[in-house]
Every structure is written in C-alpha cells, then in structure tokens.
Measured scan of single mutants.
Amino acid sequence: RQGFVPAAYVKKLDSGTGKELVLALYDYQEKSPREVTMKKGDILTLLNSTNKDWWKVEVN
C-alpha cells in the first residue's frame, strides 16, 4: 500500500540494495486516504521525497 507520511517521522536508511528505505521513528495513524499508518520500527520503501514535509512511501 502506498501513501504519504510526515518526513519528520522517518529516517533514510542505507540499504545497499538500490531501493531507498526509511525507518519509522514514531507511530503514525493515517488521517486521510492519501496517508498510510506505520508503527515505530517499520521499514518502508521510499518512493518520493521531493516534498520536504511529506514523503511518499510503500508499506511492505
């Protein structure tokens, strides 16, 4: 499932696989259909980080 999360809630990881991955630093509950819920410690695939406030991710 793809959607947006606050950029301040995730940290980029060095995956070494060519995929950009991020680590969820905090729990986040989606507040609109365009967002996704994540739990602290989740590893997500980063799809787009051009917006400084909201990053598009895919929940694996």
Rank of each mutant, 00 (worst) to 15 (best):
T50M: 11
K52P: 15
Y26F: 13
A24Y: 01
K40R: 11
L23M: 15
N51M: 08
Q2S: 11
P6M: 03
R34D: 13
V59R: 11
V36W: 04
N48I: 07
K31N: 09
K31E: 08
K11L: 13
Y26C: 14
D14R: 10
T37Y: 04
Y9E: 03
S49K: 09
S32T: 13
T45M: 10
D53E: 12
I43Q: 04
N51G: 09
F4W: 15
K31L: 09
K31Q: 14
L44M: 13
W55T: 03
E30W: 05
V57M: 01
F4E: 03
N51Q: 09
D14Q: 11
L25P: 00
V57T: 00
T17F: 13
L46P: 01
L23N: 02
F4V: 07
K11C: 15
K12C: 09
T37G: 09
N48G: 07
T37M: 05
G16S: 14
L47S: 02
L47P: 01
V5F: 01
G18R: 10
K40A: 14
E20Q: 15
K31F: 06
P33T: 09
Y28M: 01
G18S: 10
S32A: 08
K52I: 11
T45A: 11
V36F: 11
V10H: 01
N48S: 13
L47A: 03
L13V: 11
Y28E: 00
M38E: 00
K11I: 13
N51S: 10
V36M: 10
P6T: 01
Y26Q: 14
R34T: 12
L13K: 03
V5I: 08
G41H: 05
K52V: 13
D42L: 04
K39Q: 09
L44A: 06
A24M: 03
Y28V: 01
D42N: 06
G3Q: 01
W54H: 03
V5E: 00
D27L: 02
A8T: 11
V10P: 02
A7T: 05
K40H: 06
V57Q: 00
K19M: 11
Q29R: 10
K39T: 09
Y28Q: 01
A24P: 00
R34H: 14
Q2H: 08
L46D: 00
N51R: 09
V59M: 09
E58L: 08
E58K: 07
E35F: 06
L23G: 03
G41F: 05
L13R: 02
K19N: 12
D53F: 15
G3M: 06
G18E: 14
L47W: 03
